[in-house]
Design a binder for these strands. Structure first.
Lengths: 205, 205, 205, 205
DNA sequence: AATGAATGAGGATTCATTCAT
DNA sequence: GATGAATGAATCCTCATTCAT
């Protein structure tokens, strides 16, 4: 008994099922049938809505990124001043909803898929660009021209902590991960202050 | 033309062909036949020597890690003092032979496979443990108890830079990547000096 | 042209094709593709419905046994009294539909497969148990405690005649085979009568 | 270090290894490599001596039959008079060396292979012919023209008991099996005596 | 809108057989 | 005589995709 307006519901169910299944399998070796079954629909319907398996994956990635983006935006509205905003961005990255082994696994896999799928690649590049621009936006008032370099380091650190948790057996601890990044941020900021007052190269003993 | 003592030669050819093919495909979706053909042997022989596709992948990973390990050791013999040793470790990570898009791609894929294959997981964990212990060994003389935390950050940064290059279209620039990590290292070291002289919490404005 | 409710039709076609192909090949060295082609479907569908080649074989065996069982039951409803019933059981075993070289061949092969496949073994054990209990049921009124031993002999004789026809070049003659078993049965029954009146051991000269 | 006169030793080892492996596997799905390994030689050598896998199987079958034949002959030289000779033939069939689950399994498989391999078929037909002629030779003095029919029944019974043990989980009991056949033989013989003195058809009640 | 029957290409794996040494 | 390296055909099985209903 087909109903009207089911499309968004089905799409959503399929996207969520995709993330779940990828997390469960720990790889993209997930069949369309598995995804469809978990979403409670037929495999035919999955193709009907998404056209191909790759598109399903891309949609799933887009979903993860948009959830993440929404969280960042939400956190930013509450934050006051650059420092709080930076903290908000970093904490959002390791927020419990994102920093689950399931999502980490999907994330990892999407990086791999980005090597093959143009759609996947564009999405991840978009994510990187956004994170970068968010960080720069709030670093600039604090460190000026050094913002770009610093943003790149923070971003790499975040991604590095993600990837390192893909091997962990224990449950990911987002709290601890964000503390670590925040500590590094503090370090960079204070280092920047020092280096402004001290002649360049003075750091090296 | 069957000869005696071909085993090590074939194994080596197959391992190298595997890395090449994974790099070319950008994913583990590489057939045994492709690998075998590139190695100049039949697909049957690949199974004869490795038993299964997964084993071939694990062997390829082991190869990458052992090459990397050898480079680190070589660099360490030339280095004098903790600082030079730390620099050697970091530079080795981004040395031209490792930091090629081909190897980066294989690396990424192995992370993914580690979620499924016990052998792959163990190897990567081994890599992480070694890197960590190498770093700690030379950080301890410089920063004492802070070595552990600092090592984790450096390691995450290295991995993060790797992963970020998986999306790049341009050729990976190992030189620049290691400069970046080294700069961070300097920062952490100098920060450590400061914080020893300044009351805790004093950093926060 | 996919339709609804095709499953039973396809399963049936595949099972019959399996028996035909095994008979034609004279061995279980029959590919799934051959079976599928004869059934007029793709090889994929065969797996879709049965899961594996072994399952297809087991289903084919089950089919043969159920046809045989139905024939026995049908014959038994018409039979009056133990003797007629025994005759019905024996004749059913060599009935033209079962005692074809095709089915004999499949039968032989299933015995072999029973050494490897638990499913096959259970089915054949079930067949043996049923034949035995059918025979005992109607022998008991005639010979009492001797029924068990006698049933075993009749059953072995039936199987023996089957196996011996696997080597024959000529068409199996079920009529003659059942006459032979029936003659043996008569012999056993009359012998039983004699031995009741004559002191044990008196047979040996 | 090749030696002279190794051929018969190697052939023998391979033949025995074949029977062992078939017994172990419960099917003819045994690789030449397995057989060769068990015989302690290379797979190449197996082909060198036998030419093909089928020939190896045929040789193994020939071995089993010749052992069996030798046992029958040996038993016959000790036997005095037709009855003792018949008993000797039957007991030889279920002698401990033959009536092992290993050999039963090989036997079963050879019946199957006889449907495909001309060599196998000829050997089995030879076995059947010999058994038949042995039985007839000693039945004739006892029952005259009925010998042929009776021999066929005894032979079928023997084969039937063999096949029935292919499904048993317990160790085959050759002693009991031959008792059973001998009892049937007695029955047939005494029945023959009766029927000579009683009008035909008098058996039916 | 939704199903699931059906296909068929593709891939891992096995193994008999060959052959240079 | 003996090895075992090497091949490649053969086969089971999976799965994305299509399509009639």
């Amino acid at each position: 008994m087909p109903k009207l307006g089911m499309e968004p519901i089905r799409r959503d169910a399929l996207v969520k099922a995709t993330i779940t299944e990828i997390g469960r399998a720990g790889s993209l070796d997930v069949t369309v049938s598995q995804i469809a079954k978990r979403a409670g629909v037929s495999s035919g319907l999955a193709h009907h809505y998404f056209g191909s398996k790759e598109q399903i994956f891309v949609a799933a990635m887009r979903h993860i990124l948009s959830v993440y983006g929404a969280q960042v935006r939400a956190a930013l509205t509450l934050a006051k001043g650059p420092r709080e905003r930076l903290e908000a961005i970093i904490r959002a990255s390791f927020e419990a909803g994102n920093f689950r082994s399931e999502v980490i696994s999907a994330w990892m896999n999407f990086y791999v898929q980005a090597q093959t799928s143009e759609g996947a690649r564009r999405l991840l590049q978009l994510y990187q660009a956004r994170l970068r621009s968010n960080l720069i936006h709030d670093l600039r008032p604090l460190v000026g021209a050094a913002a770009s370099e610093m943003a790149a380091n923070i971003a790499a650190l975040i991604d590095g902590l993600y990837i390192r948790h893909a091997l962990r057996d224990s449950k990911p601890d987002g709290q601890r991960a964000s503390e670590r990044v925040l500590a590094c941020l503090e370090m960079m900021l204070s280092d920047h202050l020092c280096s402004e007052n001290i002649p360049a190269g003075g750091m090296k003993p």
